[in-house]
Amino acid sequence: MTAEGIKSTLRGLVIPNSLLDGTDRERRGFDVEGEISPDAIVAIAKLFFGAGYGLECITAVDQEDFRELWYQFNILTGAPQRHLLRMQLDQSDQVPSISHIYGSARWFEREAFDMMGVQVLGHPNLKRLLLPEDSDFYPLRRDQCIDEELRKTRENRRTKRLAAAEKERAKADAETAALGAAEGSRAEATTTKAPAPVEQVTEASAPTGDPQADAPTQDAVPVVDKGGHR
């Protein structure tokens, strides 16, 4: 399957309008980036597996209010095409396993569970990988295994970020309201797509946030917001 073919199929599987050509390939290292929901990952993995891609890496990231899994698919023959798919988990941290498709997912998912507490559904052997089996903590979560000083620093940063994001949001809300009923239908569409307020706040302030995402334009708030995380 060609790169274009992959992209057009992917477009139907990712969250609408989130699929982007990776900007700055030399610097960032990705050809295509997109956002997916946990339901889509099995279909996507099958697509990539069929197209001859390998599952290069799964990185679990803690964004303090929610956790994310970043899937990387890469083709091992010919010109490299590295695709990055970002998946935001809900509060239950559940995600379907793709270890029946990719053998390498078996340990990557176990590692995500081990380090970040991601509950992989359908994994044949979801146990601690690196830590002792009787561990009761997930060390790579941001609030785990850190000393008091660092905890305080992080708390401060977080408070500041939240405050800034709150201000941004209030400003955006005011502008949206000012735009009036003419844009009402579009605003409705965006709210259905928008994540829960808490998540939206953190996303706007999340470390991955593109600087531009801090000043979103009114009608495209969620779209730019989501697509902008690189």
């Binding site: 960032r28 290069e56 990387q72 590295r82 991955t208 593109d210 690189r230």
Partner: peptide
């Protein structure tokens, strides 16, 4: 800020650094 991936060839294969800044 952003996410970055850099790979190089270690004696055992592809070494990748996934960096979220």
């Amino acid at each position: 800020p952003g996410s970055y991936y850099f790979t190089c060839e270690s004696p055992r294969g592809q070494l990748g650094w996934f960096l979220l800044a």
